[in-house]
Design a protein around this nucleic acid. Structure first.
Lengths: 240, 240
DNA sequence: ATTCGCTAGTGCTATAGAGCATATTACAGA
DNA sequence: TCTGTAATATGCTCTATAGCACTAGCGAAT
């Protein structure tokens, strides 16, 4: 018997969608039992294995917990640790409105270390953007981003003034950022940073250097961020 | 036909084991093709779905990559980001020998904030351990750990002087640590920290506050660490 | 009241197939 | 030499079914 594909979506995905919809609608709360494999199979007219596939996959994503002998239950909502978020998004989760001031936006061609990290030939042209990040009109961070200039023609100061860099890359250049590797340490404010961030010289700052990779695995952005430690803590989760 | 279970291990696990063994032995290098679903099914005398299960599971763990139409291949070795490691383990990955000096080891009962984070009643007895961490005889970090005292009877200074805390908890108390939630920020050295870490007063330090959970989900250790930023960078990976 | 065993329900492992979707390769024709 | 096409191999979705392993609840015997 041939598998039937309504609207091109695999059956197990459709089953997942119906469950997720009920969770998002609040009909199913954390701890509530979800339909069992056998129930789902009957309801959706699929075989057990397919219903199983749907649930097993949801468990992998952390949406449900499965307990042998007792059932499948909605998992408690996960706090999103280790999540790559733009500055805008980070502040939004804390209920703050962010804005940023572009301090400089130029093309440089003499940053061999950074070129190397972006897998570009050393001496290649890089777009360098310095921004001061503000939340509720208070300075939060100083961020410098480097991008391979040839991949982003026409990206200039004006475009950056409005709209987050993440969404510009996504919408206007079709580049979706997927993950970042970061080095975090502490440093103290030099005169320039102190001035821009409104802290005293020597104040402790959290320094994050990151290489952000796009969905296809290409290193796309090198970032150096200095964060006021009185306004920032980094949340991470580590696993054994 | 009933599924046959040799030695109690599921067939798909046995199949995974044979593949992993070949990878570890170096017979299969990253990029090499692994037996296909159909080949594995024939070789091990199992059905396609079972062979599939074995490979799909290995992919989930990041050991292999599967490409429709072309095959299954050994994945490049993963750098372990976001990995919870004891101080001892961290230095070992950099080829350094660590040792630590127990500065104090006492029981306190007036730390309501920390008790709360460990899901213990406020005012409960906590074991407080202050240690200076050294690598190659140079001070690296100052770590203070708090544990619920009633769970770890007989854990005293002497036991801590030799052997890492992680392995003592594991071997002597059967508590396996599984993951940690951490808050990272920057601070500057006060007089005491500066003295112990051999830095000037006001030097930038990386501060990590962590709650470590055991495998059963119980918060088991609260840690406050101050790390010399000239000797430490934290590596993390974040996902979109 | 407590304990034991039974049972229904659930997830887990596995079979033996079918057809679909995609990537690679080899071959025929231009 | 280059190009399109066909064959083949691979992974992906799915059916229909079977029995195992574990949990929770209920009732009977202690």
């Amino acid at each position: 018997m041939p598998p039937i594909r309504q609207n091109g979506t695999p059956a197990y995905k459709r089953i997942q969608a119906t469950i997720l919809k009920r969770i998002e609608a609040g009909q199913l709360k954390p701890g509530d039992a979800v339909d069992s494999e056998r129930e789902l199979a009957k309801i959706h007219g699929v075989s057990l294995m397919t219903a199983r596939h749907a649930l097993a996959d949801l468990e992998r994503e952390g949406m449900v917990e499965r307990r042998r002998g007792s059932g499948t239950f909605v998992a408690p909502p996960k706090i999103h640790f280790n999540k790559l978020m733009s500055f805008t998004e980070q502040l939004a989760t804390r209920g703050l409105i962010s804005c940023s001031k572009v301090l400089s936006c130029s093309v440089v061609d003499n940053e061999p270390d950074i070129s190397a990290r972006l897998a570009s030939p050393s001496g290649s042209r890089l777009l360098k953007v310095e921004r001061l990040r503000l939340g509720s009109d208070e300075p939060f961070a100083l961020e410098t981003a480097y991008l391979p200039a040839r991949h982003f023609p026409g990206l200039n100061r004006g475009r950056l003034e409005r709209g987050s860099l993440f969404s510009i890359l996504d919408r206007e250049y079709g580049v979706t950022l997927a993950h970042a590797d970061e080095e975090v340490d502490a440093t103290s404010a030099d005169t320039k940073a102190a001035d821009l961030l409104s802290v005293v010289r020597g104040a402790p700052l959290l320094r994050i250097r990151q290489v952000i990779f796009s969905a296809n695995g290409q290193p796309t952005l090198y970032g150096l961020g200095l964060y006021r430690s009185d306004r920032h803590t980094l949340l991470i989760r580590r696993f054994r």
